[in-house]
Computed example of a mutant assay.
Amino acid sequence: MAFDVNPIFINIVLKQYLADVTLVVGILKAEGEKRGTSQTWQKAMYKSGEIPEMELEYDFHGIGCWVKYKDRIIDFDFRGDAGNTVFGIDPWLAAHYLQSLDLKGCYDLDICHKLIMATIYKLLSEGELVASDDVYFYTNDYYKLSKSRLFRSV
């Protein structure tokens, strides 16, 4: 790697990624609920579409959703709680987010993934993250999930 990005900075990016996931889920949920159907908010949404007033495009996939919000790519899976309030970090999806920030040295997806993984390993060793299969949760979020009856098995 020709450059060194501070793991503290990548940790901030990961926290912002999760904050952005929560933000766009809130936008999507509000849009789904506005449709006033008896379905869940996810089922009320089209598989893909736009919310122009929010500068948001979305495409539901498998167990997740790809979102372009303003100039960021926020791709995530619904692998937290059933209430969609806690989300984990999938390293590849977080790497796409990092790449979309258009930061110096973070143009290549593989490099972004390596930076994310190096930070994840550091945070795991410090007890700040917990691994659940191939998803990583900040410790406080993981304990919220494990105490919740709404926990989705990941």
Rank of each mutant, 00 (worst) to 15 (best):
Asp75Pro: 06
Val130Thr: 01
Gly36Asp: 12
Lys114Ile: 11
Asp20Tyr: 06
Ala19Ser: 15
Lys104Pro: 03
Ser38Gln: 15
Asp141Ala: 06
Ile12Arg: 08
Ser38Thr: 09
Ile51Phe: 03
Val13Pro: 00
Ser48Trp: 13
Lys29Ser: 07
Cys106Tyr: 03
Glu31Arg: 11
Ser146Cys: 12
Gly32Pro: 03
Asp77Cys: 10
Lys34Thr: 13
Glu55Ala: 14
Trp92Met: 10
Phe76Lys: 02
Glu57Trp: 14
Val130Glu: 02
His96Ile: 07
Asp102Met: 07
Ile8Pro: 03
Asp102Gln: 07
Leu103His: 03
Pro52Phe: 05
Met45Ile: 03
Lys29Gly: 05
Leu28Asp: 00
Lys34Gly: 13
Met54Ile: 14
Asp134Cys: 11
Tyr136Gln: 09
Pro7Leu: 04
Lys43Cys: 10
Gln42Phe: 08
Tyr107Asp: 14
Ala94Ser: 05
Lys104Gln: 12
Leu145Phe: 09
Leu23Glu: 05
Ser148Glu: 06
Tyr17Ser: 04
Ser146Thr: 10
Gly80Ile: 01
His61Gln: 15
Leu28Asn: 00
Cys112Phe: 04
Gly88Trp: 00
Phe76Cys: 04
Leu23Arg: 05
Asp102Arg: 08
Ile12Phe: 11
Ala44Leu: 04
Ala94Tyr: 02
Met117Phe: 06
Lys15Cys: 09
Tyr142Ile: 02
Asp20Arg: 07
Asp102Cys: 07
Glu57Phe: 15
Phe9Asn: 04
Leu101Val: 05
Ile12Asp: 15
Thr22Ala: 14
Trp92Tyr: 15
Lys122Val: 14
Leu103Asp: 04
Lys43Ile: 05
Lys68Pro: 03
Ser148Gly: 07
Asp133Tyr: 12
Glu126Arg: 07
Thr85Pro: 09
Leu129Pro: 00
Glu33Thr: 08
Gln16Cys: 09
Glu128Gln: 07
Lys70Pro: 04
Lys104Met: 07
Lys144Arg: 12
Val135Arg: 05
Met1Val: 06
Met117Tyr: 09
